[in-house]
């Protein structure tokens, strides 16, 4: 357990207190005129599971995308082990990129429909130039880790169930052995059994790699069971739109 203050108005320099792990400092994000995140601090230490809770539209997913270095905040910064990360999306250095992974709510939306499950899992390895033999071996290892049988690996996303596809997405997220995994409602669409399975794989991985996990969920039972501590995001003042605003 860490002593980070996860108060939106907390001190901006909490990185100095907690050098290891993934931290967001004073993150502010606007969509159009609407302020989605307002000076939010969050810190995920190695080995802990931070539950993130908040009403719909309080910016939980946006915070996860900021932490995953996929969205540039309007102000504030993300730091890994105390060092600020420069750049987002394509501009993140490979050494940093491979240390943070994200698992989305809808496995279907998060999978390229053209790729087989094996190619899906191998994609991050190929993207970083892993040798073919190693990629093949690692893919098999990852598939085994999440409990996907080899006959499923040749299928494309439309030919497997949501549960099976989310397992493939989890394998893909773990491909680089990240030390931070951000689960954005990753089990909300899954049945109880698949949810428990995904949770078991993540907890096991977390223990072996002392990885930090961010758990975004609406389910109080899941938070109670899994999170080592829970952070509340205050709700947005206005009821947000049903669909995210397009740019």
């Amino acid at each position: 357990m860490t002593t980070t203050v996860d108060d939106p108005t907390g001190p901006p320099d909490s990185a100095a207190v907690t050098p290891t792990g993934l931290a967001a400092h004073q993150i502010t994000v606007h969509f159009g005129r609407q302020r989605v995140l307002d000076r939010v601090d969050l810190h995920i230490a190695p080995g802990e599971t931070v539950g993130l809770r908040g009403p719909s539209g309080s910016g939980k997913s946006t915070l996860a995308r900021v932490l995953a270095l996929l969205h540039a905040p309007d102000s504030g910064r993300v730091a890994l082990d105390g060092r600020p990360v420069g750049g987002v999306r394509y501009r993140v250095p490979a050494a940093v990129r491979t240390r943070v992974a994200i698992l989305f709510q809808s496995p279907r939306a998060a999978s390229d429909p053209r790729l087989s499950l094996a190619d899906l899992i191998a994609a991050p390895l190929r993207a970083t130039g892993t040798p073919t033999a190693e990629t093949t071996a690692r893919t098999a290892e990852l598939a085994d880790l999440v409990g996907l049988t080899s006959d499923l690996l040749t299928r494309r996303p439309h030919a497997v169930s949501d549960g099976q596809l989310q397992r493939a997405c989890l394998a893909r997220a773990l491909a680089h052995r990240p030390d931070h995994l951000l689960c954005d409602e990753a089990t909300a669409m899954l049945d109880a059994s698949t949810q428990a399975h995904v949770a078991a794989v993540v907890t096991d991985y977390q223990r072996r790699h002392s990885a930090g996990v961010l758990l975004i969920t609406h389910d109080p039972a899941l938070l109670a069971r899994w999170a080592t501590r829970v952070v509340d995001l205050p709700g947005a003042a206005v009821d947000p739109p049903a669909r995210p605003p397009t740019r």
Binding site: R65, A68, L69, L70, R89, Y90, A94, R97, T98, V100, A101, I102, F104, S106, A109, A110, S111, D112, P113, R114, A123, P124, A127, T128, C169, R172, A173, A175, H176, T246, R247
Partner: peptide, 27 residues
């Protein structure tokens, strides 16, 4: 570009060129 699978590819470490040639153009 705004589909989550592109985010997933970027998060996996794919470069801009790779995302373009492997994930965008084939579609």
């Amino acid at each position: 570009r705004s589909r989550p699978f592109i985010d997933a590819a970027i998060s996996g470490g794919a470069s801009r060129a790779r995302v373009l040639t492997r994930h965008l153009l084939p579609h």
